[in-house]
C-alpha cells in the first residue's frame, strides 16, 4: 500500500468513525449505569482503543440522516417482530399443515454496504425470515422464508424485503438512492 492511500484511509477513519465512537461511549455509560466524568473519559479511551485494536473498514455513510423516518423504521421492525413472533409460535403449536419454505433472491436497489447490512439485519430479526447468503458485490440477499404456499406469497416476501430497504433508504440513504426508489 502506498503512503498516500494510507493517509487517505487514516483521515476517513477518524472522521467517519465518530458516530461509532459516540455509540461506544454511550454503551459504556449504559453498562456502568452512570454519567460521570470518570465514565465519559474511560469510555472515550476504551472506544478509541477498541476501534484501533479491532480495525474495521470505515462505513460509508451517505451523510443524510432523518431521525423521524429512522424511528419509523425501528418501530416497524419491532412491531413486525412482535407480530411474526406470535405467528411463528402459532405455526409451531398449530396442526401440522403442509407449509413449505422458499429461498427468495432479492436484488436490492442500493449499492451501499451500510443499507445492505441494515436491511439484512432487519430481515433476519423478524421471525420467519433469515438471510442465508449475501452477494455483497451486487447487493443481493438470499432470504429463507418460512411458511410459503404459493408463488404469490413468494412475491410478497420479496416485496416485504424491498419495503424494509425502502424505509431504511428514506432514513439513511443518499439523496440519489432515495430518489431512485421514491416513485
Amino acid at each position: 500500500m502506498t503512503e498516500s492511500s494510507r493517509a487517505a484511509r487514516a483521515r476517513i477513519t477518524i472522521r467517519q468513525q465518530l458516530p461509532l465512537l459516540a455509540a461506544l461511549v454511550v454503551l459504556w455509560m449504559l453498562l456502568w449505569g452512570s454519567i460521570t466524568p470518570l465514565t465519559i473519559v474511560t469510555g472515550v479511551v476504551i472506544a478509541l482503543a477498541v476501534t484501533r485494536a479491532f480495525y474495521l473498514p470505515a462505513v460509508e455513510l451517505s451523510g443524510r440522516f432523518d431521525p423521524f423516518w429512522f424511528a419509523v423504521f425501528v418501530g416497524r421492525v419491532l412491531v413486525e417482530m412482535a407480530v411474526a413472533s406470535f405467528q411463528v409460535a402459532l405455526l409451531a403449536i398449530g396442526p401440522r399443515s403442509r407449509h413449505r419454505s422458499a429461498l427468495v433472491k432479492v436484488d436490492l436497489t442500493t449499492r451501499s454496504d451500510f443499507i445492505l447490512t441494515g436491511t439484512a439485519l432487519a430481515v433476519s430479526l423478524v421471525p420467519g425470515s433469515v438471510v442465508v447468503e449475501v452477494d455483497r458485490a451486487s447487493t443481493v440477499l438470499y432470504v429463507h422464508t418460512l411458511s410459503v404456499r404459493t408463488e404469490a406469497e413468494v412475491e410478497k416476501a420479496r416485496a416485504h424485503v424491498l419495503g424494509l430497504e425502502r424505509d431504511l433508504l428514506r432514513a439513511w440513504g443518499s439523496r440519489a438512492e432515495w430518489e431512485a426508489v421514491r416513485s
Binding site: 473498514p57 447468503e133 452477494d135 455483497r136 458485490a137 451486487s138 443481493v140 438470499y142
Partner: peptide, 13 residues
C-alpha cells in the same frame, strides 16, 4: 463456494 468469487478476500480486508 459462495455465489461470488473473492468473497472472503473482501471480508479479510
Amino acid at each position: 463456494s459462495g455465489p461470488i468469487a473473492g468473497e472472503d478476500d473482501d471480508a479479510r480486508r
